[in-house]
């Protein structure tokens, strides 16, 4: 189970609204390479893990991804606080606003709703962990793209933190994959 802690993993305090940036960053909430997919993927794949190391890695990275989902939602929320009608129209936010207002809905920047088709969860451990490593790289690339588009230091600081975590998770998944490969070589095939 999970218990909530009333704090973010990393501080977020965004002073200036920016609906255009909010829509871009929303992709890491419910887009194809976002944190919702990451958390659901790892927490589902846990059940197929064969040993203590891989169970621990999937459980604990999946848990951190939930914290990242909360952080991305917080960024989107703070970037859309107290928007004026003019900011909605000029910021290219009208198409989102008409359906969701300033609520945080899991969708990509282009408005495609989150779908479980973004993830897989198989009994094949090697397939799972290889997908996970690719997922971390793709999410890292999306954060790179966000950094290219961002100009607010309050936003950039948080995105850099999230980007760095993708790199660390990639490393841990690589170690877990090596572990599974070693196990496969020494006894039975999974």
């Amino acid at each position: 189970m999970w218990m909530y802690e009333k704090k973010l993993e990393y501080p977020i305090k965004i002073k200036n609204p920016d609906p255009r940036m909010a829509k871009v960053i929303l992709s890491q909430y419910g887009g194809p390479n976002g944190e919702m997919g990451a958390s659901m993927r790892y927490l589902a794949q846990r059940f197929a893990m064969p040993d203590e190391i891989t169970k621990g890695v999937l459980n604990d990275i999946g848990t951190e991804e939930l914290a990242h989902l909360e952080m991305v939602g917080t960024i989107v929320h703070q970037l859309t606080r107290n928007l004026s009608e003019k900011e909605i129209k000029d910021g290219g936010f009208a198409d989102y606003y008409v359906d969701f207002g300033t609520g945080v809905f899991p969708a990509s920047a282009a408005g495609v709703p989150w779908t479980a088709a973004y993830i897989n969860s198989m009994s094949d451990v090697i397939a799972n962990l290889t997908e996970d490593m690719a997922a971390e790289q793709k999410a890292r690339t999306v954060y790179d793209n966000i950094l290219t588009l961002a100009d607010d230091p309050d936003v950039i600081d948080v995105i850099k933190f999230l980007r760095e975590r993708e790199v660390v998770h990639f490393q841990r998944f690589g170690e877990a994959l090596r572990r599974v490969t070693d196990l496969k070589d020494c006894k039975k095939y999974y």
């Binding site: 993993e9 190391i53 621990g56 890695v57 604990d60 990275i61 951190e64 660390v168 998770h169 841990r172 170690e175 877990a176 572990r179």
Partner: peptide
């Protein structure tokens, strides 16, 4: 938490 992930592997 970062150390926890490291300790897992």
């Amino acid at each position: 938490y970062d150390l926890l992930l490291y300790l897992d592997t």
